[in-house]
Nucleic acid binder design. Structure first.
Lengths: 218, 218
DNA sequence: ACCTGAACACCGTTCAAGT
DNA sequence: ACCTGAACACCGTTCAAGT
């Protein structure tokens, strides 16, 4: 009805649904209904659902276009890259789930980030194999840092989310305190939202500090 | 036919299928058929599929029973814990996928590991919020380090796996070398298996070094 | 307590056909 | 080139019923 359907439109709408209601809600049929089209129409633009998920990831990472490598020290560049990744992931509640379901190699926009990170790791003096491990570690760590503790898996209202968090906290608080002293004590912070400052500074520092420490030993 | 069905047996068989053929192959119906039982029989032992996945994770982590906190320095204890996690995860090809699909809070055996890690982080001098982030980071990092580059998602023979790896490597090698110089150069190591020594030493060092460096600043 | 049988509402996907 | 319609093989799950 309103202009032609494009792969980009589909990926965008899929991300909206995923962010708002959880990735499980992103169904070929549901997505097609939202777009006012037949489920089969999507198969013209994406070969199958896996390709759609790759399209979503590509669109997601596309919003984070890191600067190409320059002459600054690698530490600084790697820090910018990590910070950018964390920020991008945190902007999309379903980012974690999307990335987990696909192979990064298939995501064009991710390849640029990956290549940049690999180059910086090499600059730091790490071997080829070590650099491979570091870049995987970097992505996983960014996910750990960006991941909100509340699963948005079922697009609930704020009240529903608050209820789920309360139930979870209670579940931890009522654990046997002699066996799980720390879980009981930290139940609140564990299930609650992480403060953005801690994420962006402490979290990024944590990742970078490890890499820098090992680089110093090379 | 051969003794009663138990929740443990079900989780065990599910893990076997998951490790051999990928988690997608773990289906209520398929699992029931393997156990010589009706699909509905499983619903007596697990309320739904989510609970079954939690059971799988619990059984998986159960194989890794870390020593309770003792008087050794926290660095040493945290290192042992990380190494144990990595080893356990690497022993089960589907571990990553199982853990990603569930909430760690629901997995009893994981709570013990988590509590231990939280206590060690507190010992290191980190704040409550920082300790929460560190423990999440620890799990994600262990996953990154343990994760085999070859997805076992479709229980293929070794020859099939080798073919997939070759195709993937070729995909990277044929990328425009001026845009992705490092991906093209490191295509082999990127898609190939990581050597166990690098995983167990360099990988664990990487995670620990970051934590230790930040602890020194506390 | 433990399991079966039939049925329901949903998937992703193929294939032929329309324009 | 782009989309529809009908059909297929598969899910997880409920519910009543059996022993």
């Amino acid at each position: 009805m309103m202009g032609k359907l494009t792969a980009g439109m589909i990926a965008e709408r899929a991300l909206e649904i995923g962010d708002a209601e959880g990735l499980d809600a992103v169904t070929i049929r549901r997505l097609a209904a939202d777009l006012g089209v037949t489920p089969m129409a999507l198969y013209w633009h994406y070969k199958n659902k896996e390709q759609l998920l790759i399209g979503m990831a590509d669109h997601l990472i596309g919003g984070f276009a890191p600067e190409p490598a320059d002459e600054r020290p690698w530490q600084e560049q790697l820090r910018d890259l990590t910070r950018g990744l964390v920020r991008t992931l945190r902007a999309h509640p379903c980012a974690k789930d999307v990335i987990e379901q696909i192979d990064a190699v298939e995501v064009p926009n991710f390849l640029a980030v990956w290549d940049l990170a690999l180059g910086l790791a090499r600059d730091a003096g790490f071997s080829v194999e070590e650099s491979c491990l570091i870049t995987k570690y970097l992505l996983q760590s960014a996910i750990a840092i960006a991941d909100a503790p509340v699963h948005h898996q079922a697009g609930r209202s704020d009240e529903e989310v608050a209820r789920i968090v309360r139930v979870k906290r209670l579940g931890l608080e009522t654990l046997p305190v002699e066996r799980y002293p720390h879980l009981v004590e930290m139940a609140g912070p564990l299930v609650g939202a992480m403060s953005p400052e801690v994420c962006d500074t402490f979290g990024v520092d944590l990742v970078l500090a490890g890499i820098e420490a090992l680089a110093a030993g090379r």
